[in-house]
Simulated assay, not measured.
Amino acid sequence: MDTTLIELINLKKYFPTGSGILHAVDDVNLQIKKGKTLGVVGESGCGKSTLGRTIIRLLDSTDGKIILNGEDITRVKGKQLAEVRQKMQMIFQDPYSSLDPRKTVSEAVSEPLLVSRKYKKGEVQDAIQELMDLVGIDKRLRSSYPHELDGGRRQRVGIARALALNPQFIVCDEPVSALDVSIQAQVLNLLKRLQMQRELTYMFVTHDLSVVRHISDEICVMYLGQVVEMCPSKELFKRPIHPYTRALLEAIPSVDITRKHKRELLRGEITSPINPKPGCRFAARCKYACDKCHEPQTIREIEKGHFVTCCRAEEVGEIVIHTRLEG
């Protein structure tokens, strides 16, 4: 039976601006099972990275709860927060900017070990080498600086650093988007292997649907700070319900030149995330929009394990099925 590691209850993260309040993450409810990967997708600015940073307490939430292993960690501080942060780590999008250019590989990996004060001086060097071996960094690179490494090796250093304190949960914030395609595959396979070896739980943030399909057990689709659809990975690609999810999937390029691929262009103005009105934030661009869409929306389970924030989910779902059968 799957056990929940992370649970978010009505999580919100707002930022004050000169023209109002930016709703970066707005009323998010979800669960992440132990040893599983939740993929989070959506266009730039939808709140994916902010959600990840809020979960691991790099950002303080505005409202709601963050539950880790049954414990509410939303407002913990001081020593208790330091202990929580050892259980949750992050792999950043740009491996170059996330590393101190004045520190060698050895120094970068050793930093969390020294800060935790869990290791004696003699143990630190052995732990560094163990971590480097684990992520596939050659021993000869211990004294190298970030600018002397390629993108793939720099990201491996970031992964080693994230693993240093044996965390349970890792937020992978677009960890392969800055890498060449061939290197992307190596890093993704490394992450999957580490997950199996260490029973890690991932939240994988990306805008690349082919990547998220490969690595995720479940996928959460975000639009302007809100979760609009969430279900198992295979189910999402087989039967997307929310009109925004469908638009994302239809935008994936196809290599099959013999098959006609009709893309549905999204029209209309993007709703401002600053002081948004109640209702569906995708309504202005949705051809299925009706009067009910301008009323407050809640995410609901329309099928087992398939959650959608859409007042016309059942109707739109049938339209999707019929369209595919006719095609």
Score class of each variant (00 low, 15 high):
G151I: 04
Q168N: 11
S143T: 14
V171K: 02
H147A: 08
E174N: 08
R153F: 06
R154V: 00
S177Q: 03
L165D: 07
F169R: 05
C172N: 07
K139M: 10
D180W: 02
G136K: 05
A162W: 12
G152S: 08
A162Q: 12
L165M: 10
R161W: 08
P146K: 00
V157Q: 02
G152V: 01
D180Q: 03
I170E: 03
L141A: 02
L179T: 05
A185G: 12
H147K: 08
L179M: 06
P167H: 07
V171L: 05
D126E: 15
V181M: 12
Q184R: 11
L134R: 14
D133V: 12
A160V: 07
V176L: 10
V181A: 13
P175H: 07
A185L: 13
A127I: 14
D173Q: 03
R142L: 14
P175G: 05
I170F: 05
L134E: 15
L134W: 12
A164D: 10
S177C: 05
L141T: 01
E130G: 11
L165R: 06
V157D: 01
G136Q: 07
S182H: 06
D126L: 15
Q125W: 15
D126Y: 15
Q168S: 11
C172Q: 06
E148I: 03
G152H: 01
P146C: 02
L179D: 06
S177F: 05
A178D: 09
Q184G: 08
R161F: 07
S182P: 03
V176F: 09
N166D: 15
S143F: 12
Q155S: 06
A127C: 14
C172L: 12
P175V: 08
A127Q: 15
Y145T: 04
K139E: 12
Q184S: 11
A164Y: 09
D150C: 00
V176C: 10
P167W: 07
I137D: 01
E130N: 14
Q168E: 14
A127W: 14
D138H: 12
D150S: 01
D133L: 13
R140Y: 11
A185Y: 12
Q125D: 15
V181Y: 10
A160S: 08
H147M: 11
E130P: 09
P146H: 01
D150Q: 00
A185P: 09
Q129M: 15
L134Q: 14
R153M: 11
A162N: 12
D180P: 02
E130R: 14
Q129F: 15
H147S: 10
A162P: 11
L141G: 00
V181E: 12
H147E: 11
E148M: 10
L149C: 02
P167K: 04
D173N: 03
R154W: 01
D138R: 12
L163D: 10
G136R: 07
S144N: 04
